[in-house]
Design a protein around this nucleic acid. Structure first.
Lengths: 148, 148
DNA sequence: GCAAATTGTTTGAAGTCAAAACAATATGAG
DNA sequence: CTCATATTGTTTTGACTTCAAACAATTTGC
């Protein structure tokens, strides 16, 4: 919150103290990364692909545990799963505990995910293009120490 | 996109390949940081405080250049400035080019920003609590290389 | 002087999210 | 076993953020 860096060439605007804040840099980086991701995997947003990956790794997981895992409200998950179910990527099945729904990937979901994974691998390489392998690992580690 | 890390203790869910993706870690970190920021500076969102800092560093900047600086559409800026003007934190003044509005901080805006800056300094320390000064600098640098 | 570009604005739409209240179902204490 | 309590998924409502297209006012450039 003290020193004033150089103006940004693109806009000609003085960015003020913002570039010294971790939160600001996180937002810029995330914006860039998500934009590339969205272009790499059209039709399904980054967050939704994340959901599919979570379901793949935990077949039959309940909606509540899914919500808890991504830090969203239970009620939010309803609409999300409605979306994914409308696209035939997942399906809900009544559990032994009949209050719960187990969530499973459909065949189409698994197929889309397989395709997405290849696109994600390319995407990840583009994102880390300006980073050495060691730097990339360091970044992941530092982010992990920030993000709980 | 290959190895499968340990389950997260909190949820008991297998996170799958997500923790190996930079975008995922960015989202988690940003979520944590923004949550702390929002609690530190109540009433005005992180993005809005960013706007105020930008206006402070560039008094009289036009709406379009502001929009361009934060990567938003021109039309988006209208509502944002309406908000801030309704809270008497900024004001618009017709420019020499009478198509444009110059944006300026009000006295209340400067006062709120001064208070916010102290809160942000504390916030930044909490965010970087688990990082050495060198690690914090390294993180900012690596994020800069990701985020355009 | 006049066509073309720029600026701020309005309108309409989409996407994301949370909070509160509800029915169905399960759990646990007695 | 019974009945108060908790949990799960859902609906409804509302807030927030964003973009795109169309428009009038104004400026710029040929």
């Amino acid at each position: 919150m003290s020193r004033r860096p150089l103006k940004r060439p693109g806009t000609g605007l003085d960015p003020g103290p913002l570039p010294g804040l971790i939160g600001y840099r996180l937002r810029l980086a995330q914006q860039t990364v998500f934009r590339d991701f969205a272009a790499s995997v059209p039709g399904v947003s980054p967050g939704r692909i994340g959901m599919l990956l979570l379901v793949e790794a935990n077949p039959g997981v309940t909606q509540s545990r899914l919500a808890q895992a991504v830090g969203r409200d239970r009620s939010t998950m309803v609409g999300v799963l409605d979306q994914l179910e409308a696209k035939r990527l997942v399906e809900r099945r009544k559990g032994a505990d009949r209050r719960t729904n187990g969530v499973w990937l459909t065949r189409a979901g698994r197929s889309l995910l397989a395709r997405a994974k290849r696109a994600i691998a390319d995407h990840e390489q583009r994102v880390a293009a300006r980073l050495s392998a060691a730097e990339r690992a360091k970044l992941l580690e530092l982010l992990g120490r920030i993000g709980a």
